[in-house]
Design a protein around this nucleic acid. Sequence first.
DNA 1: CTGAAAGCGCTTACAG
DNA 2: CTGAAAGCGCTTACAG
Lengths: 346, 346
Amino acid sequence: MARVTLKTIAEHVGVSRMTVSNAFSRPDQLSEDLRARILSAADELGYAGPDPAARALARGRTGVIGMVLTNSPRDAFTDDVAVGFVRAVAGSLADAGYSLVLLHSSRDAGVDPARDIAMDGAIVYSCAPAMSAYSALRERRLPIVNVEGSPLPGVPDIGIDNSSGAYQAAKHLVELGHTRIAIVVAALDADNRPSSEISLDTASPTISRRLHGWMRALDEAGIIPSLVGTPRVAIDAILQERIDRMLDDPPTAVLAFSDLAALEVMERARDRGIRVPEQLSVVGFDDNPLAARVSPALTTVRQDIDAKGEAAVQALLTLLRDEEAGSPPLLPTALVVRASTAPPRA
Amino acid sequence: MARVTLKTIAEHVGVSRMTVSNAFSRPDQLSEDLRARILSAADELGYAGPDPAARALARGRTGVIGMVLTNSPRDAFTDDVAVGFVRAVAGSLADAGYSLVLLHSSRDAGVDPARDIAMDGAIVYSCAPAMSAYSALRERRLPIVNVEGSPLPGVPDIGIDNSSGAYQAAKHLVELGHTRIAIVVAALDADNRPSSEISLDTASPTISRRLHGWMRALDEAGIIPSLVGTPRVAIDAILQERIDRMLDDPPTAVLAFSDLAALEVMERARDRGIRVPEQLSVVGFDDNPLAARVSPALTTVRQDIDAKGEAAVQALLTLLRDEEAGSPPLLPTALVVRASTAPPRA
DNA sequence: CTGAAAGCGCTTACAG
DNA sequence: CTGAAAGCGCTTACAG
């Protein structure tokens, strides 16, 4: 049995293909009675509706929006903040009738989703401008929105105020009286070295901005922190080992690039009998739902991930309407003081 | 400036459109030299490669696989297990050169992704067979794989052994000597009633199987548990309130449908000064990464979510190759005893 | 309210 | 190694 198409239905009912098309896509273009006859014939013949691929070509619209994540989906989905962002974006997109496709960066088999997947636009999340997916999207002249990335000419940027949040976090430690402070980051290769001795350049725009905020507050207080980091973008064995080394001669306070990293520090401190916050203050970033749950509850910097997702989708929808979309102001961040920070012991 | 297509390049170079097509899609079909000329002309003219929508129509293949989640992406992504599954599937799919599109169930604006998005196949996760997305996919005769769902004729099923895992969990409590046991679930409306008094029918196949396992072990011991549940599929205010009510006159042990629900019970118990495990034993399900982290560490049932994702993708790839794909055996589950369970106090 | 024409941009056999 | 023909299944103006 050949495939059932508009044509099959048209011949069956005795009308033209395009009347059948109208029956599905523009109900107001034909009489109710004729439409009912067409629909019931379609049903009878097992026709599920116009073929989406053909429709996409003819209409020039797919209903799909792509999302480029820093790494493979496997890595990205171990990061709670990234997951929260995907969730918010998928939700807002669904409200607008779009579906979200996850674009991996292929190094693998000849396929490059950013180049080969049919879509109407894309959201690029926390990516270095050099990423190949990025250039593929730009070459296709697809509408794109940049989230927590480095600014690119002509591309709307969405992001939180990382720098100000980090500044508040570091300032909080300074005000508590800490002077021996370590900073724990990813995407930066640093094994317990003073910040004055190593380059603060990192491939991650987000971490770069947080570093900037922390350093500004510490600079103001004349404090030179030590840096603990891993070249990878996520918490890995290298970082864990370096955190351990840091705890051999612990600072009195730690600024971590994420709540997950902060928890990592807290757990390792606990294993060694270093008490938080009495002996070690720890500040996270993100306000992961976990942060309020652990004990001691984590002092951290809150960001509104739902708002970020919504803002990214709104900017993209504006672009899809062929309107200009500027970059909205940075979304606010706020220090949330809980129980993991205290003055250093005398 | 008109859009740049194969034709533009062909005219520019002075070859036919299909030679240009070959340059991109079948490099072995033309001389290296000609191909280089074509590619550089394309580059110069700003041609990003064959249009994916047109290609999809001509090839009958999109490179996209859909995923239907129980609810809106917003709900699904609050569930760690679902997120882990999406992660595993997206990863395995990427390895095979496919991208994952998240399909929401529209009740909203006329679009129904399961009907309207171009894709090569779909994975249906933990859905009731009645879901509209389901029937849309079937009508389109798309290859589909069913995960943690109710069996459907002709559709491969992937799932873990929920029933056996739950049996082990309940058996563990029985062996510790518990007789006053409560079961906490979602997707089942039950406000602290004995299991003998209410129907165990639930819309969730997963919870239904877990219930079956728990009840079997308890039946064997002659124990009638009380049931605490909410009609919604996720933890909500109703469930929290009913858990609170349960703790007014607490059992000595709780079987929870997920680790998150177990944590909910533990937190509420702590708030009231009910000690876990001394006064209340708690068993979760899933072995969420959190489970080992909380204190006391949670006794739970482990499932291998990565294996589940990989199995689903393998089954779908088999179908896409036009081969028969049967349902593999249920993936194993195993009780992991940690610190949240103990014998009841004398 | 209905239909004939042109086109969306590519690929798949098939010839030469 | 290269190209002319047919087709993928639909939709968009435009006439009538």
